[in-house]
Amino acid sequence: MGDIAKGALGGAWTLLVGWILPTALNLAVFHLAVAPSLRGLSAFDRLRYAVAVPTGLAMLTGTLLLGLVANACQNSLYRLLEGYLLWPARAYDAGCRRSRRVKDHLANRLTVLRLERRHREEGALQPEASEQLARLLAQPRIARVAGQDRRRRTAVQRALLQERLGRFPIADDQIAPTRLGNAIRRFEEYGWDRYRLDTQLLWNELTGCVPDQVRRQVDLARASVDFFVALLFGHIVVCALAALALVTDRPDTPLAVSTIAVLAALVPVWYRSAVTATDEWAAAVRALVNTGRKPLADSLGLDLPRTLAAERDMWAMVSRLSRIPYHERAAALDPYRASPPSAPE
């Protein structure tokens, strides 16, 4: 019973922090800054009179209902910010091209810093490395920032550059058109890139067999990103309602305009905060994959191979078996099946 209560409270905590709390903040801003100007709007007045309850109870009920609705729509909200939903093809392609340019630029800057450091420490570079450095410095954009990097980039600042580069997927064909899409896609591809384990396909199996602490870390890390995503979309809705308030009979124009300006300025801040918060989420998913492979193999009736190459082959076949209809070639998975337990004598 204690474990059941702990699990229920854990799920409620992530829902509370990720979706209900930011909804409450946005409703408070709406109530204080926008609602007074909407009282002349017939639809708003009818709704206010129909819900004849104290303001505090109405706020609490509205927060819970809207928070639950936002939680139910989270996949669509994330896909919109990641660039997968409602994005025109041209905008999607342009975003992907821009993301590749940014990724290549960061990688080239770090390569220049690394090669120049090796040159200082060793006195000379191998011909291939020297040619690569010269080729990079021949690019005007790289040459311009390279001088700034030499003067200003400390070890910590170089680590921050590496952190920014780490928010992109390894494979270029996995690049997304937005920063949040790339930051999430990098750990979605982690299991496949390292072990050929498709974590998106086998997510329920993987999370169902790992220790509770590991699964809890993933949930808590995602709750931080959920918080900023919910806050961001809530600000957009409040901005739209504040713009609607400007066309009512008696609007508080200075307050409505100030609300729109402040919330519009905060939207990119929350978006950037969501991107940064994915770092902890990525670390939790990485731990989930690294520590969950063995329990997952055991739960599927498989023996984890001794070599990494054989393990990658095994997970590729498991992922393929889960993704496509059965084919006779799936029998290649038989050598990895665990031996049945021997009957007691």
Rank of each mutant, 00 (worst) to 15 (best):
I142E: 11
A265I: 01
D279L: 10
L161A: 08
A50H: 10
A138L: 06
R312A: 09
L16E: 03
A316Q: 13
A124F: 04
E122L: 10
R152C: 04
T207R: 12
Q139N: 13
E116D: 10
H31I: 06
T178G: 05
R39Y: 02
L202V: 09
F168S: 10
R167K: 15
L165R: 14
A8Y: 10
S224Q: 15
G191N: 03
K6L: 13
E328A: 07
Q162S: 15
M59F: 08
Q200V: 03
R151A: 11
V53K: 05
R79C: 08
Y271D: 04
E345V: 08
G11F: 07
V267G: 01
V267M: 13
A282C: 10
Q157T: 14
L85Q: 13
A274S: 12
R48A: 12
D313G: 03
T154M: 05
D303S: 11
I170E: 07
E205S: 13
W315C: 06
G56V: 13
R272Q: 14
C96L: 08
L85K: 05
D198I: 00
S224V: 04
A230Y: 01
V285Q: 06
L304D: 07
D249K: 07
Q148D: 09
A138D: 11
Y195A: 03
L47F: 14
Q74A: 13
A287E: 13
L9N: 07
D219G: 02
T248E: 03
A183F: 00
V156H: 11
T307M: 12
D173T: 11
W13Y: 11
G166A: 14
L220W: 07
V145T: 11
L255E: 06
V269A: 12
L165Q: 11
A94D: 08
P127V: 02
I260K: 04
L16W: 13
R250A: 12
A72P: 00
V318F: 01
S224K: 10
A72D: 05
E128V: 11
Q126M: 01
V218I: 14
G67R: 03
A309L: 14
T14H: 04
Y190R: 07
I236S: 07
V17A: 04
I175D: 02
L263Y: 01
Y195W: 15
G2Y: 02
A221Q: 04
W87F: 05
Y92L: 03
P127K: 02
V225C: 11
R158P: 01
G234N: 08
L80S: 14
F30T: 01
G95N: 03
A338L: 04
R117L: 12
I184L: 14
L113K: 00
P268R: 05
S342H: 06
R150M: 08
R250G: 08
R185C: 06
G67N: 07
T63S: 14
W315K: 06
L241Y: 04
R185H: 05
L68S: 14
